[in-house]
Each structure stands twice: as C-alpha cells, then as structure tokens.
C-alpha cells in the first residue's frame, strides 16, 4: 500500500494553511449551548475562541487574562417582542427571571473567580481572572443556567437573553479599550462597555435562547419571539471587577 507523504508539500504552504485554518476557526466568544428548553437546569460553558489582536502580526492570539459575563437582571432591561420595543415587564413572559445563572467553580483557566450579584443578592453573572487562556488554545469557562419558566398565559414561544461578555488581555481604563487589550462582546446600549464601532465585535453580544415547551394559548397563533437586553445602567454597575473592595478593572485612571 502506498502511503501519501507530506514531505513533498512545501513547508510554506503547510504553515499558511495552518494559520489560515486558525483564523477561520476564530469566532466570537459565545455560549457552548446557546439554546435551551424552559424548565431545565443546564450546565454550560462560555467558549473563548481567541484572544486579543497582536498589533505586530494582527493575529488574535494575545493571552486572555480575565473574562466577565453578565446576564440581564430583568429589572430595567429592554424588551422587544418580534423585534418591536415593548413596555411589558419581563415577568409577563418569564415567571422566575432574577437569578439566571450560577458559576461552576473551575480553576483550569483562571485562578480567581466570583459571582456577580444584584442588590438583592441574585446572581446575574461572574468574572474569572488571573492566569489565563493561552492565546493559541480555546478556553471554556463553566456555568449553570437555572430553570426558567415561560408564563403559560403569554404568547412567548422563546425568550432570548442578551449576554454581555468582556475578554480582557490587559487592564486599562475605559478610554484605553482597544483590540490589543480587550475583546468586547457586549450590546451597544450606551454603557461604558459598548466599545466603539471600530473595535472587533462591536455590538455583537452573546445570547441564550429559552424555548417554550408548554403549549401556546390558541389565541397566540405561532407565538412571539421575545428578546431581553441588559440596560446601560446595569452593565455599568455589574461589569467592573472589584477584589477586596478595590476596583481592578477597568482601572480608574
């Protein structure tokens, strides 16, 4: 049997292919399981596919040293129904929104991690940092989404939660945000963490869709798609990382 050997393929072609493949494999930071059924508690992962952009090579392989993930708290979040702005509260569609996730402890990637809580103590996100994801490898940060209940009397066939994520490669102040230091996967809602349109991933947040499993009321027809997005005020409150009472990120100056 004749075995095909790679030695006759020029090394430059192999190197280029690997680099191209790695670039093509690069993707936004997203949830491993982006769609779940209501009534189920799901163990999930935040997938960090690449780091920050190396200004010398343009490769997105700078080490991620920390990450922050925040779900909408549902208190002052914006709601759309079939893409139209709605003034209905989230409780009209989800009966038990408020503490959407819990952090699963894991120190494979980052040495420190903690849950982010709203003023009532409900968990709305987490941060993890110190150590870091090696630039050439994929990172997985585990968490658990709690069991959501779509209001039976509502016409919601799904509720999509917009999730704000920041992957940090270097600690800077807000004015210093640039592709070499941070990858922002946040909704552009007017918060300090929108980033600017020239940054990678601008207004490209992650999301988690909760799918209805109970029957829709007959009057609902095909049902409606609801989207809930965190407010600027919430992101300004929940995104900063504080350790022992000191704000670590963004740096104050």
């Amino acid at each position: 049997m004749k075995i095909m050997q790679a030695k006759n393929i020029p090394l430059s072609i192999i190197t280029t292919s690997i680099l191209l493949a790695s670039q093509m494999a690069s993707a936004h930071t997203r949830l491993q399981i982006p769609s779940i059924d209501e009534g189920t508690r799901v163990y999930n992962n935040q997938i960090i596919s690449h780091g920050c952009r190396n200004p010398d090579t343009q490769a997105v392989d700078l080490t991620t040293i920390a990450t922050i993930l925040v779900f909408p708290d549902g208190v002052d979040s914006s709601i759309t129904v079939n893409e139209e702005v709605s003034d209905q509260p989230l409780s009209a569609f989800i009966e038990n929104w408020g503490s959407p996730i819990r952090k699963v402890q894991n120190k494979d990637l980052f040495e420190l991690e903690e849950e982010i809580r709203d003023p009532l103590g409900n968990v709305v996100g987490y941060w993890a940092g110190s150590g870091g994801r090696q630039g050439s490898l994929i990172g997985a940060v585990p968490f658990r989404s709690n069991s959501f209940v779509i209001a039976e009397t509502s016409c919601a066939k799904s509720v999509k939660a917009i999730v704000a994520i920041a992957d940090i490669c270097k600690i800077t102040n807000i004015a210093g945000f640039n592709d070499a230091d941070i990858m922002l996967w946040t909704p552009a809602v007017g918060s300090n963490f929108d980033g600017t349109e020239d940054l990678n991933g601008y207004n490209s947040p992650a999301s988690l869709i909760i799918n209805r499993t109970s029957p829709l009321p007959e009057s609902c027809g095909e049902g409606v798609a609801v989207v809930v997005t965190p407010s600027a005020a919430q992101l300004n409150r929940d995104m900063p990382v504080n350790i022992d009472g000191v704000q670590i990120w963004p740096s104050p100056n």
């Binding site: 420190l112 903690e114 849950e115 982010i116 809580r117 709203d118 003023p119 009532l120 103590g121 941060w127 409150r237 929940d238 990382v241 504080n242 350790i243 022992d244 009472g245």
Partner: peptide
C-alpha cells in the same frame, strides 16, 4: 484570595 462577593448587600 478573594474573600467577598463583588456586590455586598446589607440585606
């Protein structure tokens, strides 16, 4: 090591 949660509430 971190000893407290990020947002501490009096409640």
């Amino acid at each position: 090591r971190l000893n407290a949660v990020l947002l501490i509430v009096s409640a």
